[in-house]
Design a protein around this nucleic acid. Structure first.
Lengths: 401, 401
DNA sequence: TTCTAATAAGACGTAAGAAG
DNA sequence: CTTCTTACGTCTTATTAGAA
């Protein structure tokens, strides 16, 4: 009986032992595999007859050997393919980063040279030509704002402002509406926080950043909208009104207060419209701008001890990445009304670099940190659910045998 | 006796059958694994006692289960890690390419605006200021050439010219010595041949490209030096002299003939110095320039039916990539003496775009094609040697048992 | 012809032996 | 122990013979 049960075990070998094939056998099998990795059952029998070294291996074992061999090759091939792709992408990345760096240098050089030209041209007699040229360059923000019908606080009026804000934000984030120059000391790199640039020669101070984050777009928007949690100068953000739009977006009216950088100057407050929407390609956009009387939009009375600051179209463009994560573009563009502080303090209010460090990069840092926490907590209890689920499905398919 | 042989077979199971553990058992084991993936043998015995569902599994099996489980996790983790890296690199690539595109647009805009300013400034009274500014911008090539002691055809003289050529080539390839603008219709992308740019507002015509190639640097240099094999307009390249340099490089004196694009114009020939050298970082550089009387260098008499063309510092920078392959930068910079052809034909000699398409991109295409052929021939006889070698080593280690 | 059940073959995951 | 290998159970899919 025990003997029978042993044979039932289907080891199907003469001596009932687990054997490894001899190197000669393996070599013969490898050779055959090289010629034909997928022999039919007839071909396999033929092989056994033709090759004396394989004659003591059963047909079933041959079949299994070929199966396993194919499986091994597949696994190895996939792994090496992935590594090759990885190497190529890494190299491409390096090349692109260097090219980026070169372009940034070129841009900086051209922008400063340009500024020089412009400055000297203004002092001379090229007034008419100059305007025509400038309108080509600073295309976006200049001629979008003015010529609109009067707008009020009605939904239609707000939506009009919102859409305009969106367009202007995007042209700064991904277009050439602002002459961005490389942020001093910020080279793009795999370990850097992202690509950061600051404005040159536009009104107010502006900073721009883009980077990758391992979080879903909605989560990113959530985090970034909660400005007090990552922007240390942000004292409060109050949502005064929420207005859904027809296209599934949301318009909010916000009141925001920032701390003053020193006690010698009054703090700033802002009266903002925030527009959150989803674009056709699935990108999430959150953009903001100040509402002011000059636009014929709704207005907000001044608040004591606060100087009303202006936010020019700014925001976050959050694009989903295939395979999780997001590509994020941030633009911060403020006019901090430097005239209202003593002259020695004005650089604090007129420095794009300061804005980039305190706001734009702080946002990226916050996102990076949260993404890291999430990924770490994921790693610890990883690989547990799948097995349990599989076990359950097996149990179900067997009817709880 | 048969029963004994079955036990000898070490299947070590009650009924001698290959069994898979029940879903309940797997679930229990997974839970234990989650708490402690590497239990000691004492701990394992304890587990069997504590967990009634595992009581019919032998201690040895438990040990094996944990071993296999650890192995599986390791494999899975490695695979998912690779994939995650891949996703991240892909996203980073996308971001960098978009940023690149934006920067290229910005550069084009600035360069044209600049040209406009420069043109109009020259017509007015800013002569003194203008020079100071221009020297900042077109830094490299302008003020490197003139002030040198007279040089002759001696090794020292040639080396001096070669080193200068190298420096000027590099400043065009990786620096901002030339105002490169995006080649019309050439967007960088994963499927594109590389990043291609053409010159704006420098003497002669110039094109620049960079890209990745799956070939070793020495092989790349070999291919690129064999210009007639890939540059259809190249009629002949003769090496007249070869001179090794102290730093392991090579200086060659070449005579090159190009076909004329039409029969209405005479062909061009070139009298070139080519300098091949290895940089400290392992990069291979092949750079060339024309030798002409004006430099006090060696000279070459004119050839009948040929118009002597001028090659400004040009060349190939070939940097090895970790994991095989190369990053390649190409600069082609010619002065084709357009004055010598009828006016209607001059655009042919003055178009950087034509140069880029016929020379610079042709080089990249040739490399790409050869790399592809190599990789294909590799794939066909792949995975054969390792197995045979392994089998041999096994046989050796066993002493041909 | 089309549908269905039986069969075969392969992919995938995993238990356990072998070698280092 | 880890890594590789042999062998097997399970599930899926392609093929085919027989029935509607």
């Amino acid at each position: 009986m025990m003997a029978m049960s042993c044979k039932d075990g289907k080891m199907a070998m003469d001596n009932g032992k687990y054997v490894r094939y001899t190197p000669e056998q393996v070599e013969a099998l490898e050779r055959l595999y090289h010629d034909c990795p997928k022999p039919s059952s007839i071909r396999r029998q033929q092989l056994i007859r033709e090759c004396p070294i394989l004659s003591n291996i059963e047909p079933k074992q041959i079949k299994v050997w070929f199966q396993n061999r194919r499986c091994r090759e597949k696994q190895r091939k996939e792994a090496s393919r992935l590594q090759a792709v990885n190497r190529k992408l890494t190299a491409m990345n390096k090349l692109l980063m260097e090219e980026n760096d070169r372009l940034q240098k070129q841009v900086s050089q051209l922008v400063y040279e340009n500024g020089y030209f412009r400055q000297h041209t203004q002092n001379t007699t090229l007034a008419t030509k100059d305007t025509s040229c400038e309108s080509v360059v600073t295309s976006g923000q200049h001629h979008l704002t003015p010529q609109h019908p009067p707008r009020d606080a009605s939904p239609a009026g707000l939506l009009s402002i919102a859409e305009e804000t969106l367009a202007e934000f995007l042209s700064k984030a991904t277009g050439t509406a602002v002459e961005w120059v490389q942020m001093p000391g910020m080279k793009p790199g795999p370990d850097s926080i992202g690509i950061v640039a600051i404005s040159h020669g536009c009104t107010g101070v502006a900073a721009r950043a883009c980077g990758l984050v391992g979080l879903e777009p909605t989560r990113v928007a959530e985090i970034l909208k909660d400005r007090p949690s990552w922007f240390r100068d942000c004292r409060a953000v109050d949502v005064l009104n929420v207005l859904p739009t027809a296209n599934g977006g949301t318009i909010e009216l916000l009141y925001m207060q920032l701390y003053a950088p020193t006690t010698l100057a009054p703090a700033r407050d802002f009266w903002l419209l925030r527009y959150t929407s989803v674009m056709e390609d699935g990108s999430l956009v959150v953009c903001e701008r100040s509402l002011s009387n000059t636009q014929n939009g709704p207005s907000m009375p001044p608040v004591q001890n606060f100087v009303r600051g202006e936010m020019l179209p700014s925001g976050y463009l959050i694009r989903p990445c295939e395979g999780g994560g997001s590509i994020i573009h941030i633009v911060d563009h403020l006019n901090l009304e430097a005239w209202s502080v003593p002259e020695v303090l004005r650089p604090l209010y007129e420095s794009s670099t300061v804005l980039a460090q305190k706001t734009t990069m702080a946002a990226l840092r916050q996102l990076r940190q949260i993404a890291q926490e999430v990924s770490h907590s994921n790693v610890t209890n990883w690989g547990r659910r799948p097995a349990a689920l599989r076990a359950l499905s097996q149990r179900l398919s067997r009817g709880f045998q």
